[in-house]
């Protein structure tokens, strides 16, 4: 999880552009366009939206998140460690006979076992989500685009990356405008100060 690193694969070496960024006017248009990009066989691309457009993963051909498996594992670990801690404390660490009860009083350990299981699962869900999403990633070529600030407001975007095998500077841009994009621009990789070569409305 690279703090302060570009979320750009090594493949980007030698490319002058990050890729093409296209803005769509409605969620419906974006959905249709995603289906078309998927069907055209692109693989290094993304849809960028201010809110989760429901069902877009189908249009993009993405597989469901694997996060639940991680959450299950961390949850069970939390519960297991919690139960082990309590058993160890009462059998080994500090054995005290209270009210003539046995040392291994497992029913009394249930609440803390449960709570620690929830803690483990919740930490797994949040930290796992950060890891899967490579968050935090404070620098990204897309932030070079002036237009892109709209992605957290009302902008619905598709970005196709330059190292996609099917990518072509001109054809891909034309393909996206053909799908109904209202703005199409090339996003540079370097030089944060420079955004002059982007922004050309198609």
């Amino acid at each position: 999880m690279g703090l302060m690193t570009l979320d750009v694969p090594e493949a980007s070496a030698g490319y002058s552009h990050y890729g093409v960024l296209a803005r769509f006017e409605t969620a419906k248009a974006l959905y249709r366009a995603c289906e078309a990009v998927r069907d055209a066989g692109y693989s290094k691309w993304d849809a960028l939206t201010p809110f989760p457009v429901h069902g877009l993963e189908k249009a993009m051909g993405l597989k469901p998140s694997k996060l639940p498996f991680l959450v299950l594992a961390t949850g069970l670990s939390g519960a297991g460690l919690g139960f082990a801690l309590q058993s160890w404390v009462h059998i080994q660490g500090y054995p005290l006979i209270i009210s003539g009860k046995p040392l291994f009083t497992w029913p009394a350990f249930v609440p803390v076992t449960f709570e620690l299981g929830v803690l483990g699962a919740a930490l797994g869900a949040v930290l796992g989500m950060f890891a899967f999403n490579k968050l935090p990633t404070y620098h990204h070529p897309l932030f070079r685009s002036k237009n892109f600030t709209r992605v957290t407001d009302d902008g619905l975007f598709i970005a196709i990356e330059a190292w996609d095998p099917k990518y072509d500077d001109r054809d891909t841009a034309e393909f996206l405008s053909g799908l109904g994009a209202v703005e199409v621009e090339h996003v540079p990789i370097d030089d944060p100060a420079d955004d002059s070569d982007g922004g050309g409305a198609a």
Binding site: D46, A47, L48, T49, P50, P52, V53, L56, E57, M60, L62, P64, S65, L67, G128, M129, F130, F132, N133, L135, P136, T137, Y138, H139, H140, L142, F143, F148, V151, T152, F157
Partner: peptide, 12 residues
């Protein structure tokens, strides 16, 4: 955290 609304991120 550098959130950029990527749908690949929204999914997770």
């Amino acid at each position: 955290l550098g959130w950029r609304g990527s749908h690949r991120n929204w999914l997770h």
